[in-house]
Simulated scan of single mutants.
Amino acid sequence: MSASLRIVFMGTPDFAVPSLQALLDGPEEVVAAVCQPDRERGRGKKVSPPPVKVLAERHRIPVLQPESVRTASFLEEMQALAPDLLVVAAYGKILPQRLLDLPRLGAINVHGSLLPKYRGAAPIQWAVINGETETGITIMQMDAGMDTGDILLAVVVPIGRQETAGELFGRLALLGGEVLGNAVARLKEGALAARPQAHDLASHAPMLKKEMGHLDWTLPACRLHDLIRGLAPWPSAYGFIDGKRFRFFSPEVVPVRAGSPPGAICRADGQGLLVATGDDCLLIREIQPEGKKRMDAGSCLRGLRILPNTPIT
């Protein structure tokens, strides 16, 4: 029986947790976990550990949380761990080549898209925003670029027509762990063949910004439908009704011409808000008034009087 690989895992958020768990459940040895420092989170600004740290400490795995991965001291710590392989999943920073070259098997990454599509920080959200019908998990041999390394393994999954980025995020996180386990086993056996990415087909997935959620109702209903799903649960889509901000969820395209200007509420009832757009209408089934919980439209509208053609700005 071959010796266990010594693996250093690098990851920070929820997406990385199933990948770390897959390694912990497997035959290899996780000698350390590296994640971002504890940060303030939520409205209370409470300092909280990242999910990867919580899981690692539960399994008594040493945790490193450097502010920078480019210092000589961090490189020395990594050298002392003598890893055979570096596994990265949503760590949050680009790694220097000298770190990637340290393990004898190099470094592999669990990425939430079908590379070279959607390189960057938010591949899952942008796939939904852009109306893609499929995406997947790519296991990539890392280099010093932004998701530019050779592809080792890729698995395709469909995107549901009503699926949100949050729902897809959860599915791909679990799939990432499954595919990673397979990839590490095959890499250890020398049974994975790397293939270069087609760089001319690359697209980018930058971090989302809160202002992206302010809806432009002159867009077609199908584009707004994808945007609302892709921004859920964060930063979420929103607009203003009589000066008050409302967040919108669970959209449905209704292929009818409204005869009203884009953004006008054509109907408000238990089914939702039917809103005119640049092409067809959009039915909003769930609403979150400012300062309140997300709820179905019927519950929200019980105490809210909306006249025909009231605009959402």
Results as ranks from 00 to 15, higher is better:
4 S>Y: 00
9 F>K: 11
9 F>P: 15
10 M>V: 04
10 M>D: 09
12 T>V: 09
13 P>G: 03
16 A>I: 00
17 V>W: 09
20 L>K: 06
20 L>D: 10
23 L>N: 14
26 G>T: 05
29 E>A: 15
31 V>E: 07
31 V>T: 06
31 V>L: 05
40 E>L: 03
40 E>W: 00
41 R>G: 04
42 G>I: 10
45 K>T: 00
47 V>R: 13
48 S>T: 14
49 P>I: 08
51 P>N: 02
52 V>K: 03
52 V>D: 04
52 V>S: 09
59 H>V: 02
59 H>K: 05
62 P>D: 01
69 V>T: 09
69 V>M: 03
70 R>Q: 13
70 R>P: 04
72 A>F: 10
75 L>F: 09
76 E>F: 05
84 D>T: 10
87 V>T: 09
88 V>T: 04
89 A>D: 02
91 Y>C: 07
92 G>V: 05
95 L>R: 00
96 P>I: 01
104 R>H: 13
105 L>Q: 09
108 I>R: 05
113 S>G: 04
121 A>I: 03
123 P>I: 12
127 A>N: 07
128 V>Q: 01
128 V>I: 06
131 G>H: 05
139 I>N: 07
141 Q>S: 11
147 D>T: 14
148 T>M: 09
149 G>L: 02
153 L>N: 09
158 P>R: 11
161 R>G: 07
164 T>Y: 09
166 G>W: 07
167 E>R: 13
168 L>R: 05
169 F>C: 12
170 G>F: 10
176 G>T: 11
177 G>F: 06
179 V>M: 01
179 V>S: 02
192 L>T: 07
193 A>E: 15
194 A>C: 01
196 P>Y: 00
200 D>C: 02
200 D>Y: 01
215 L>F: 10
218 T>S: 15
220 P>M: 07
222 C>I: 02
224 L>R: 11
224 L>W: 00
230 G>M: 12
231 L>D: 09
243 G>E: 07
246 F>T: 10
248 F>L: 15
252 E>N: 05
262 P>F: 11
264 A>V: 01
280 D>M: 15
283 L>G: 00
289 P>C: 01
293 K>R: 11
296 D>K: 09
299 S>H: 14
300 C>T: 06
302 R>H: 03
